[in-house]
Amino acid sequence: EPLWIRPDAPSRCTWQLGRPASESPHHHTAPAKSPKILPDILKKIGDTPMVRINKIGKKFGLKCELLAKCEFFNAGGSVKDRISLRMIEDAERDGTLKPGDTIIEPTSGNTGIGLALAAAVRGYRCIIVMPEKMSSEKVDVLRALGAEIVRTPTNARFDSPESHVGVAWRLKNEIPNSHILDQYRNASNPLAHYDTTADEILQQCDGKLDMLVASVGTGGTITGIARKLKEKCPGCRIIGVDPEGSILAEPEELNQTEQTTYEVEGIGYDFIPTVLDRTVVDKWFKSNDEEAFTFARMLIAQEGLLCGGSAGSTVAVAVKAAQELQEGQRCVVILPDSVRNYMTKFLSDRWMLQKGFLKEEDLTEKKPWWWHLRVQELGLSAPLTVLPTITCGHTIEILREKGFDQAPVVDEAGVILGMVTLGNMLSSLLAGKVQPSDQVGKVIYKQFKQIRLTDTLGRLSHILEMDHFALVVHEQIQYHSTGKSSQRQMVFGVVTAIDLLNFVAAQERDQK
């Protein structure tokens, strides 16, 4: 057995438009009618409502009807409940999964919650491996369901041993009777949507819809739904939504950006999952974080739909894509998950301010006199920076000697690579993860907040409520011999709460 199987392995699926269902090699399930009293909570997966979006479509000038398939009504709160249950049931049916076995899954959280929910009911041990950027709410729900959680670096490539995929496979090879159901490759993922989600949409719309818009992560949702719609409703256009920084969209030119990270969760990847059939997507749109969270908040405030950030991405694209539809036509959007997962993220004004998705003037509360002053007023001194090749031991000596707790790590040209902190280095040394002679590049981390000289002290204040420091950066445009230009970030300084307090105190003292 291989040590790991690539999540982007070539698909062996034989589905073709027009091929009889009787030739399918898979076990198919028909939607079942729910009894009045459910035998367990797993029976509350599927049969989610279709809700008309009344205000947002009109606000953006849509002539067509805009409908939302509300997947956050599933038992675990997301569309991923469907595939989690289906993968477990299919693994039980073919004898792969037996009582007492362990389920391991690399996930952005929602599939993990679905699997942990099913594992709690069915009696399996469950280990979820997820990147650090995923919300604390997801972690809390997983723990409450009895799952064990392993976190991995957000910026690790999918084929790196440190990625959530790599760590999951390492655990599988170490733990007896453990299984990775593997949402990236498992046919049960798109089949769950082909058999149930798509049929529900067709039934709820009486077979009449002209466009379907869905955000894409593993691709199982859009693949399964689109294949069924292509068979039953061939005139329906399928629109895929991919965040900026991901590479799922086609044509490839759409993916060209210097951005590699994004805040919206559960969609987009740096590889093409095996289950994603991009041939059934008629057109791709890219979405960005700001519009995703703005539209998610709009869905909550104006439509009462308590959905997550990827739902915002989907609707932001839908109001663009559906401009081509006329009166009497219908566009369906998939709202994948609930706001429950993001209470401390985009639902929080403070978080939105820190990330730059909300401006101070958007909030009406009274601010102190210094709130709208610029960061450049602080008069920061030149920063202490270190090269990635310097040793951890030497870096600790320098920081202690100069009285700093942290320093930016830059390359020879001064471009920011990340940050090192005294606390992080000492804990890594004590844990045996690094040696004093190791290069400081081994303990770089990139989960820090950046701020510009033109940003306000109010925004800085919000950042420092949650973080010990902020890195002050400025952009530099560099022209190359080819005539092309590129933008790079340079370090201007490091600012802490002490710097802000000293500035405010000094100004008030001078005024007296």
Rank of each mutant, 00 (worst) to 15 (best):
Val275Pro: 02
Ile398Met: 14
Asp455Asn: 08
Ala321Arg: 09
Lys402Tyr: 07
Thr421Lys: 14
Gly418Val: 02
Ile267Lys: 06
Ala249Cys: 02
Asp362Tyr: 14
Gly245Asp: 02
Gly245Cys: 08
Ser437Asn: 14
Trp284Val: 02
Asp242Ile: 02
Arg278Leu: 05
Val473Gln: 08
Ile334Phe: 12
Lys283Ile: 07
Ser313Trp: 02
Thr274Asn: 02
Val264His: 02
Arg488Gly: 13
Gly240His: 02
Leu384Tyr: 07
Gly308Met: 04
Asn341Leu: 02
Ser428Tyr: 09
Pro383Gly: 02
Phe404Val: 09
Glu401Tyr: 11
Ile416Phe: 08
Thr294Phe: 13
Met425Glu: 02
Leu422Glu: 15
Lys286Arg: 02
Leu353Phe: 14
Glu324Lys: 14
Leu378Tyr: 06
Asp282Arg: 14
Phe492Asp: 10
Val434Tyr: 15
Thr279Ser: 10
Ala470Met: 15
Val409Gln: 09
Ala249Ser: 02
Ile334Arg: 09
Leu422Asp: 10
Ile396Cys: 10
Leu430Ala: 14
Tyr479Met: 14
Arg350Pro: 04
Ala506Phe: 12
Arg278Gln: 06
Val264Gly: 02
Ile390Ser: 10
Leu299Tyr: 02
Glu265Phe: 02
Pro436Ile: 13
Ile416Pro: 02
Cys331Val: 02
Leu306Ala: 02
Leu429Met: 13
Ile238Leu: 04
Lys449His: 02
Val332Leu: 14
Thr257Cys: 08
Asp362Ser: 04
Leu500Cys: 13
Thr482Ala: 11
Gly432Met: 02
Lys449Pro: 02
Gly393Ala: 13
Leu305Arg: 05
Ile396Lys: 02
Asn255Gly: 04
Gly356Trp: 06
Cys392Asn: 06
Lys359Gly: 02
Leu299Phe: 02
Pro251Arg: 14
Gln259Trp: 06
Leu399Asn: 06
Glu377Cys: 05
His394Phe: 11
Ala407Pro: 08
Pro243Ile: 05
Gln259Val: 15
Gln406Thr: 14
Asn288Ile: 13
Asn288Leu: 10
Leu430Cys: 09
Thr482Met: 11
Ala321Trp: 02
Gln447Ser: 09
Ile238Arg: 02
Met425Tyr: 10
Glu265Ile: 02
Arg459Leu: 09
Leu422Phe: 10
Pro251His: 07
Val494Tyr: 02
Gln376Cys: 14
Ser313Ala: 14
Gln259Phe: 15
Glu412Gly: 11
Leu248Phe: 02
Val495Phe: 13
Arg488Met: 14
Phe492Gln: 15
Thr279Ala: 11
Thr257Asn: 14
Lys433Met: 12
Phe404Leu: 13
Lys320Cys: 08
Glu265Val: 02
Arg488Ile: 15
Ile477His: 12
Lys366Trp: 09
Pro388Glu: 04
Asp455Thr: 12
Ala311Val: 07
Ile396Glu: 08
Gln447Gly: 06
Val241Ala: 04
Tyr445Glu: 02
Thr395Leu: 09
Asp455Cys: 14
His480Leu: 09
Thr421Pro: 14
Thr314Cys: 02
Lys433Leu: 12
Ser310Phe: 02
Phe492Glu: 12
Ile444Val: 12
Val440Thr: 05
Ala316Lys: 11
Arg488Glu: 14
Thr385Ala: 14
Arg452Asn: 13
Gln259Ala: 04
Leu276Lys: 10
Pro336Trp: 02
Thr389Trp: 02
Ile416Thr: 10
Ala321Cys: 14
Glu263Asn: 06
Ala413Trp: 08
Phe357Arg: 06
Arg350Glu: 05
Thr389Ser: 09
Thr454Tyr: 15
Ile238Phe: 10
Ser246Ile: 04
Thr257Pro: 05
Thr385Val: 04
Gln329Gly: 11
Leu422Gly: 09
Leu501Glu: 02
Ala497Asp: 15
Asp467Glu: 13
Phe346Val: 02
Gln406Met: 06
Pro368His: 06
Ile238Val: 13
Asp362Gly: 11
Arg278Phe: 04
Ser287Pro: 06
Lys366Ser: 10
Thr391His: 13
Glu327Lys: 11
Asn424Arg: 15
Glu397Met: 10
Glu475Val: 14
Gln329Asp: 06
Asn288Gly: 15
Asp411Cys: 12
Trp351Met: 06
Glu401Val: 13
Leu417Asn: 10
Lys283Val: 10
Phe346Pro: 07
Asp467Asn: 11
Tyr342Asn: 06
Pro388Thr: 07
Asp289Lys: 04
Ile272Thr: 08
Ala316Phe: 11
Val494Trp: 02
Arg330Asn: 07
Ile444Gln: 11
Gln487Gly: 12
Lys359Ile: 11
Leu417Asp: 10
Lys345Ala: 02
Val494Gly: 06
Lys484Ala: 02
Val495Glu: 02
Phe503Leu: 13
Glu401Trp: 06
Ser287Cys: 12
Pro243Cys: 02
Leu417His: 13
Thr456Cys: 10
Leu335Ala: 06
Thr456Glu: 15
